[in-house]
Each structure stands twice: as C-alpha cells, then as structure tokens.
C-alpha cells in the first residue's frame, strides 16, 4: 500500500532522483569546519522565521516603533524569546558567516572551479552586514538612532557622491520617519529577497561542484 503511494508520487515528483542527486552524493572526507556554511543557512532560516513573527506586532513609525517593541517584550506571550533569538541570531550570523568565509579562504576552496561560489559568497557577506545595519535602527531607541546617524554619516564622506548617498539612505538630510520606513522595507523585503536568491545560487553551485577536499601536500 505505502509502496504504491510512494511509487505514484515518485513517478510524478521524481523523489528517488531527488534523493540520489541531492542527498546520496559522495563527498571528500568531511571536517567540522565544513559545517559553517550550513550553520549560516540555519541562522538565516531562524532569522526569517523569528523576523516574520516580529512583523506581526512591529510598527515602523517613529511614534510607535519603540512602544511596539516594548509590547513585544512585555505584552506578547514569548515575545521576549522571539525577539531575543532574533537579536542574538543577528550577532551570531555575522560571526558565523565571517568565520565560514575565513575557512573557505584558508583552505583555498575559492579556486578553480569554485570562483563563482566565492563571488556569490562575497555578495552574501555584504547582504548579511546590510541586514544587521538596517535591522539595528528598527527598535528606534537611543542606541539604534545614534548608531544609524554615525553609520550613514560615514557613507556621506564618499567624495562627490557622499551627499547623494547620505540623502538616499536617510530619505532627507536628517534621520526621520522616512529613514525608518526605508530601512524597514530594506530589512524585511529587499535584502532578504536578494539574500534568499543568492543563497539558492550558492547552494546550486556547491551541489554542482561538490564540497572541496581539505588541501593536502600535493595541492
């Protein structure tokens, strides 16, 4: 009976092929350092899930952002846990992605044929930092307000284009409701969409080329 259902599904979905191509692959002898990529992926998924819960209560306006976070922390059942995981997950994700990059660097895994995996990886790294930067402003407290003020100021020191970049980031010459709205849109739509797309490409390339082996004396 179960076999029949499985066969029916397999014929239409190609489950066995999927298993053979995705999971039952041969790999070089593994190493604990190779778990950092999947750890980054896990953290990304955690951030997405907890982030979606947070948007249920969060309001992106200077008048209400602070109070809505306060409500999440004190009024919503397990709101403190969800926010706590999201907060610490962001910190951990920056560390894990960075260390993952370092391990790829030190094992020289970015060399032929994995150059594109590396290029996409740099994109992922920048997007991860971007997520941290935009997310930090959202609670609209003193720390986040002033961190964003100095952060955008730095962008404003670019010769010639600085003023334009500063205004584009802030939506005006000062931090305002527009800035918050902008950072919110970037944090929950633009950057995660780009991140998800690039992660897809990254994973495709990893499956295509296989995990690189740990370099030996001959390499």
């Amino acid at each position: 009976m179960w076999k029949k259902i499985f066969d029916w599904l397999d014929e239409r979905l190609g489950l066995v092929d999927l298993y053979k191509n995705l999971l039952d692959r041969p790999e070089p002898q593994g190493n604990w350092w190779n778990t950092l990529g999947s750890a980054s992926l896990f953290l990304f998924i955690m951030q997405a899930v907890t982030g979606i819960f947070l948007t249920v209560y969060y309001t992106p306006s200077p008048d209400h952002a602070y109070d809505s976070i306060n409500y999440i922390m004190n009024g919503v059942a397990f709101g403190w846990l969800i926010r706590g995981i999201h907060h610490w997950g962001a910190t951990l994700m920056v560390i894990v992605v960075f260390v993952h990059m370092l391990r790829v660097f030190f094992t020289a895994s970015f060399k032929y044929p994995r150059e594109m995996t590396w290029l996409i990886g740099v994109g992922l790294f920048l997007l991860t930092l971007g997520m941290g930067f935009t997310g930090y402003l959202l609670p609209w407290n003193q720390k986040s307000y002033w961190a964003t003020t100095v952060g955008t100021q730095i962008a404003g020191t670019v010769p010639f284009l600085g003023d334009f970049i500063l205004k584009a980031l802030r939506g005006g010459s000062n931090l305002s409701a527009l800035t918050l709205q902008r950072f919110f849109a970037a944090h929950i739509w633009m950057l995660p969409a780009a991140l998800a797309g690039l992660i897809g490409a990254h994973l495709y390339l990893i499956i295509k080329h296989g995990e690189s082996h740990f370099p030996t004396k001959d390499d």
Partner: peptide, 26 residues
C-alpha cells in the same frame, strides 16, 4: 571523493549537530 563519505548521512549529521548547538546557544 572516492576515499570520502556520503553527504547523507555523514555530512548532514555533523551539520545537524552544529545547528542544534547554535539553536541551544540562541
């Protein structure tokens, strides 16, 4: 690769352990 392991279950097993540790830490 010929001297290596299988992605499933060998690599996935390590990945899961690390993810679980991170989850606990969070």
């Amino acid at each position: 690769v010929n001297r290596g392991e299988r992605f499933w279950p060998d690599s996935i097993f390590k990945d899961l352990i690390v993810s679980l540790a991170i989850f606990t830490l969070l």
